[in-house]
C-alpha cells in the first residue's frame, strides 16, 4: 500500500444464507483506493457492489479477508467500529437516508453531535459544509421532504463530510436523480477527491461516471476486476 492508498481490501468474501442456498455476494475481492482519487466500481444489479461497500464501511462483516484503513485492519475484533464510522468513513446513499424529522442543518450537525462536537462548532461547520454544497438560506431549515432529490443528496454529502472522514463511500449516489442533477452530484464528489484530498469510493451501475473516475473496477457475480488504472 502506497502513501496515497489509504484503503486496501484483501481477499474479502461474504456469503449470505438464503432459502434457495448460499449466495456469495463478494467473492475473494482485493483492491485498493487512494486519497485524492475517485475510485468507481461498476457492475450489474445483484453483483455485490453494495455488499462490498458496506463491508468497507463496517456495516457488514465478511467471513474472510482484511480491510486495512490508514494502516489498521477494521476486521480486527479490537477495532472500535463506532469510532471508525465517525472518523474514517462517511456514507452517501441512493435514497439519501436523511432523518425526516430533522432540518437540513440538523441532519448535518447530527454526526458531530454524536461525536461530541460543541453545538457552536457543529453549527458553524454544518453551515459551511452546506454552503459548499450550494445549500443555504431557507433550505437550512427545510425538512428532507420539502427539498428536491438533488438538494437531499447534497445535504447527505455534507453530512458524510461532517466529521471530516478520509473516505467517502457512495452507493449509487445518482440512482435516484435525473441526469443533470446526477452530474452535479458526481462533480461534487470528484471535487471532494481532487480538491479536498478525500478517498471517494463510489459504486454504481451507471457507466457514464467512469469518465470522472481515477480508477475503475467492474464487479460481476461477486468478482472484482480493475478495468482502468
Amino acid at each position: 500500500m502506497t502513501e496515497q492508498e489509504i484503503l486496501s481490501a484483501t481477499d474479502v468474501s461474504k456469503t449470505f444464507q438464503v432459502k434457495a442456498g448460499d449466495v456469495t455476494a463478494v467473492d475473494s475481492v482485493s483492491f485498493t483506493a487512494g486519497r485524492g482519487q475517485v475510485t468507481t466500481i461498476v457492475g450489474p444489479s445483484g453483483s455485490g457492489k453494495t455488499t462490498l461497500l458496506y463491508i468497507v464501511g463496517s456495516l457488514e462483516k465478511p467471513e474472510t479477508g482484511a480491510i486495512e484503513v490508514a494502516g489498521s485492519n477494521i476486521l480486527d475484533p479490537a477495532t472500535d467500529l463506532v469510532r471508525y464510522r465517525r472518523k474514517h468513513v462517511g456514507f452517501v446513499f441512493q435514497f439519501f437516508n436523511l432523518i425526516p424529522t430533522l432540518t437540513a442543518l440538523e441532519n448535518v450537525m447530527l454526526p458531530m453531535d454524536l461525536a461530541g462536537v460543541s453545538p457552536e462548532e457543529q453549527n458553524r461547520r454544518a453551515s459551511e459544509l452546506l454552503d459548499g454544497m450550494g445549500v443555504s438560506g431557507r433550505l437550512l431549515k427545510a425538512r428532507p421532504n420539502k427539498m428536491s432529490g438533488g438538494e437531499n443528496q447534497r445535504v447527505a454529502i455534507a453530512r458524510a463530510l461532517a466529521n471530516d472522514p478520509d473516505i467517502i463511500l457512495a452507493d449509487e449516489p445518482t440512482g435516484n436523480l435525473d441526469t443533470a442533477t446526477g452530474r452535479t452530484v458526481i462533480d461534487i464528489l470528484s471535487r471532494l477527491a481532487h480538491e479536498s484530498d478525500k478517498c471517494v469510493l463510489m459504486v454504481t451501475h451507471d457507466e457514464s461516471v467512469l469518465d470522472v473516475s481515477d480508477r475503475a473496477f467492474r464487479m460481476v457475480d461477486g468478482h472484482l476486476n480493475e478495468i482502468r488504472a
Binding site: G57, L59, V82, R83, R85, R86, F91, N97, L114, A115
Partner: peptide, 16 residues
C-alpha cells in the same frame, strides 16, 4: 427502523 439504521451508520453507539 431506517432512522435507527442511519444513526448507527453515522457513528451512534447503541447507548446513544
Amino acid at each position: 427502523t431506517r432512522e435507527l439504521g442511519i444513526l448507527k451508520a453515522i457513528g451512534s453507539t447503541d447507548r446513544q
